[in-house]
């Protein structure tokens, strides 16, 4: 198939950035979107131009490194799919595809389509953990966890930290990510001791990083390749106000 690509190029964080258009012939419909990008880069190399830089690693939908906003949708129009799992048979011969980086102030562009998502790490560092010294853990079966709680914790923990939630949000809010990370631990009995502290610290780290506010669009969950539910945002809201109130009276 033949494709017309409108690709964002930006030399660094301070560059204004611009679109470049390229025509790509003989794209196999069995190739993945990133393999199509590989093909583009090989073509650019032959033409003597610098290839487009984009983030990717595992190419099986789990590392969360791939990004790309494809025709306005982070990871493309397919649901529950990361860019690396998106295949070209979902496009038509002759299509024009617009490829942009994930856009948010908290995700500055490093180069071309690569953005810096370290703000997510800082949210986790603020409280996305259970303090347990290596070697001091009790037996794994010492504390039964209701299956339902464990399953719901797993639903939240499935988040791959790709940032599609932020990119899809008109306000660049990181609430879905933060709520999934906090929710996973807050749902489990192991996570109770640090729950209030965790929630307050993670939310304030999220705010400091420059993400916008949640407006309950629900777009994040629709864009999420792992279908993280909005319930975790509701839970974070609930846990946050409880923690705040407790902190006032403590």
């Amino acid at each position: 198939m033949k494709l017309f690509l409108k690709v964002w190029r930006q030399s660094d964080r301070n560059d204004e950035g611009r679109f470049e258009t390229h025509t790509l012939d003989e794209v196999s419909e069995d190739s993945s979107f990133l393999e199509m990008m590989d093909q583009l880069n090989e073509q650019l190399l032959e033409e003597g131009t610098e290839p487009v830089v984009f983030d990717h690693d595992c190419r099986e939908g789990i590392c969360g490194m791939c990004s790309l906003t494809i025709n306005g949708h982070p990871h493309g129009t397919e649901n529950s799919t990361t860019t690396c799992q998106l295949h070209m048979r979902k496009f038509e011969d002759g299509d024009t595809i617009t490829i942009e980086p994930f856009r948010a102030r908290a995700f500055p562009v490093v180069k071309d389509l690569v953005v810096d998502r370290s703000a997510f790490d800082s949210i986790t560092q603020a409280g996305g953990f259970i303090t347990v010294r290596t070697g001091s853990a009790p037996d794994g079966n010492a504390l039964p966890v209701p299956k339902n709680d464990s399953d719901r914790a797993m639903d939240a923990a499935a988040c791959i930290g790709c940032g599609a939630c932020v990119a899809s949000c008109k306000n660049a809010s990181a609430m879905l990510f933060t709520s999934a990370k906090a929710g996973h631990l807050n749902m489990l009995p192991q996570g109770q001791a640090e729950k209030d502290k965790r929630v307050l610290a993670m939310v304030s780290a999220m705010d400091e990083a420059g993400f916008g506010n949640c407006r309950n669009f629900g777009e994040c969950s629709a864009a999420c390749p792992k279908d993280i539910s909005l319930d975790y945002i509701a839970k974070l809201n609930r846990d946050h106000i409880k923690a705040k109130i407790k902190s006032v009276f403590a």
Partner: peptide
């Protein structure tokens, strides 16, 4: 909130669209 939100996403996509909202 509007002021903060505009600041959080200073640059919009070339194609602005939604799946759900």
């Amino acid at each position: 909130l509007v002021v903060e939100n505009r600041r959080a996403r200073p640059q919009s996509n070339y194609i602005e669209t939604t799946k759900k909202a």
